[in-house]
């Protein structure tokens, strides 16, 4: 992983079209400004993780009731 150190107000560029700026730093929080083309989806990583977990959950629950009942008798 490439690691760069930046100060408040500084920025980095990714390719020609994406610019990421450090807007503010406060204790352990960093505010980031992003300029990018519309077709690039930007999402907080944990949102993506949550979304994937939700999809896993929806797919995995098919015989849930039977599995759960058996699980409790086995506990």
């Amino acid at each position: 992983m490439l690691v760069l150190t930046r100060k408040k107000g500084q920025s980095i560029k990714i390719g020609d079209n994406i610019e990421i700026s450090i807007m503010d730093v406060e204790e352990d929080k960093v505010s980031i400004g992003i300029v990018a083309p519309r077709n690039i989806e930007i999402v907080r990583t944990e949102l993506l993780d949550v979304k994937n977990e939700n999809i896993t959950a929806a797919n995995a629950q098919k015989d849930g009731l039977d599995k759960l009942r058996k699980f409790f008798t086995d506990l």
Binding site: E46, E53, A57, L68
Partner: peptide
């Protein structure tokens, strides 16, 4: 809750 094939690994999402 995620109920995986191996029910021992049953988990839930505390983050969201």
């Amino acid at each position: 809750v995620v109920i995986p094939d191996n029910i021992e690994e049953i988990s839930c999402n505390l983050k969201a």
